[in-house]
Computed example of a mutant assay.
Amino acid sequence: MKMLLLTIGLSLVAALLAQDPLDLVSEQLDLTGTWYVKAVVDTKEMPVEKRPDKVSPLMVTALEGGDLVITFTIMKKGQCHEKNILLEKTEEPGKYRALHCKKVVQVEELPVKDHYVFYIEDQRRGRPFCLGKLIGRNLDVNFEALKEFKKFTQSKGFLQENIFIPAQMGKCTGSGGSPVLQEHQLSAQVLEQDKLQVKVWVPHCER
């Protein structure tokens, strides 16, 4: 009986070792589905006029082999344009490369359920540029997630005054149509109650 249990145990261990560890991490992260950008931070304070006045939900699709595709919508000349970015997995768990290896994207799981951070390293005019995005499964205000995001930004050397909350853009009304802004907004009063010194960027609906 003991030999049988030992054999079964060794078989399970062998099966686990045979699996790609990156695939295991991908399953644990459970990134597929729709995500909402709840907060953004960058290494150099972005001028208000250059900030994204609204952000669309992110649709994450897992490909065979562990790569991910991020689908989102951007505004260009008053119209919606869908974009797809391929994230190619690396040997380091949770780390991906995008745009022909020009960008490095690290996915960090927060201790708050259904909340992650996309930490992006890039180059702007030959100089390093970093960006952090707090994403969540829904638009509900989660103070614990905001606190954890604040801790993360501090650990990466971001200035707290560089954190801002973008408005949420709904689905476009047809191909190339105008976006519908989500009514859900994080108000300055709500953020002040949590004593998080972050800026709220409230856009105009018309551009």
Rank of each mutant, 00 (worst) to 15 (best):
P47V: 10
E64K: 08
C205Q: 14
L139M: 06
P47I: 10
R137P: 01
G176T: 01
F143H: 14
Q28P: 04
F164N: 04
V180G: 08
G132I: 02
K2D: 14
H81Y: 13
L191F: 03
V55G: 07
F129M: 08
Q154K: 14
P179M: 02
G132P: 01
V60T: 05
P111R: 11
L29V: 13
L22E: 01
E82S: 15
R207C: 15
P179A: 05
D194Q: 14
L16F: 15
T34H: 07
G65S: 06
E183V: 07
R51V: 04
R137H: 03
T153F: 01
F158S: 00
G65M: 03
V41R: 02
Y36P: 00
Q79T: 09
Q185W: 07
F129D: 09
P166W: 00
G170P: 02
V13A: 10
G65P: 02
L6P: 03
Q106N: 12
E88R: 04
V117Q: 01
K83T: 11
L22W: 00
K199W: 13
T153H: 01
R207V: 13
V69R: 05
A14W: 05
L86C: 10
F149S: 01
T43A: 11
D42I: 15
M1F: 15
L99S: 10
N142F: 03
V13T: 10
K44P: 09
K147H: 15
E121P: 06
V40G: 03
E206K: 12
C101Y: 14
D30K: 14
S155A: 07
H115Y: 08
L10D: 06
K89D: 00
V105A: 01
L131K: 08
V190P: 07
S26D: 03
C172H: 02
Q189T: 11
L24F: 11
P52F: 03
F149R: 02
L159V: 14
W35S: 00
F158H: 02
K95G: 06
L146P: 03
E88F: 03
G170I: 03
L24M: 15
S26I: 00
M59S: 14
H184A: 15
H204T: 15
H204K: 14
E121L: 07
I135H: 01
L12H: 06
E88Q: 08
G78D: 08
I74T: 09
I135R: 00
P179L: 05
D20T: 04
R51E: 06
K77I: 13
K95E: 11
E27W: 08
D67M: 02
D53W: 12
I135G: 00
G176P: 00
F129E: 07
L12G: 04
S155L: 07
